[in-house]
Design a protein around this nucleic acid. Structure first.
Lengths: 138, 138
DNA sequence: CTGTGGCTTCAAGTCGACTTGAGGCCAAGC
DNA sequence: GCTTGGCCTCAAGTCGACTTGAAGCCACAG
């Protein structure tokens, strides 16, 4: 079986090598061995990295992901946790949708009236309920 | 006109006083004056804080928000920027929706098959496209 | 033999948005 | 008089996820 240099993994996964070393240090991925000093990975690491990306995209922290993936290869994902995260995502989506609609409205609504415009006030009310723990940006 | 102590503003806005001082330092809000050493705010600051929350919720950084709100009271929001952010939100929403659906599926799909399940593979493909710049969590 | 490139380690730096801590002022209540 | 609470300033710390820098090994090309 062909093993991959860290640079090759980086290229294929679209991640910098520094990130891969960091992930290894955090126990998220593991090299199969060394060739001299050089880490060797087998191709399975790419799927694992995809799972990690997935977890990140879903808003899990690296620690949570590490727990889900286990130290072994088999992702022992907690279904309850998945469903819970799906629900959380649902809330985020609703919030962001309201926000998007209001932003769109604000972008076309006459200027001086923003603070009087009922739509904008609704937007403010949505915003006030929002307590950002972490930030979001595409 | 009644002016508000920082603690009162904090209470009404649901923010710690430390955050208010921090926002003042960053030029996001301004005290109308001092009573002895104590900052005095007028009630308008609450609306301004709501606008700031709104901006944060929409994913703007404090610097961007400061620029939009201007040093004066009038929010001179750039409509183009608003629309652009609405579009970005739209993308985020789509991505998160796909993610949510896939998570829900994964939560009910038989265990060992995750890596073979077409739905899960789709999920992985979605995830791979995702390059998180900042994190999201409700 | 001397680069050059790609890898190695380890410590420290970065970024955004705050929070925390130390040390102090001032007014009101006991 | 003394404590208590709420405010003040300024510097430094925190958190997550990495990145960057310094210093060095090793193999292959010219």
């Amino acid at each position: 079986m062909p093993t991959l240099d860290i640079g090759e993994v980086a290229r294929r996964a679209g991640l910098p090598t520094s990130t891969l070393r960091f992930y290894e240090e955090r126990g998220l991925i593991a090299a199969t061995g060394r060739n001299g000093l050089r880490r060797q990975f087998d191709a399975g690491v790419l799927q694992r990295l995809a799972l990690i990306s997935l977890g990140r995209a879903a808003g899990f922290s690296l620690d949570e992901i590490a727990a889900m993936l286990g130290n072994d290869g088999q992702p022992t994902i907690d279904r309850v946790q998945l469903a819970a995260r799906a629900d959380e995502l649902d809330h985020s989506i609703r919030r962001l949708t309201a926000l998007r609609d209001s932003l769109r409205h604000a972008a076309v609504c006459p200027a001086a009236s923003h603070l009087e415009c009922p739509s904008f006030q609704k937007l403010l009310r949505v915003a006030e309920r929002y307590r950002p723990r972490r930030k979001s940006r595409s």
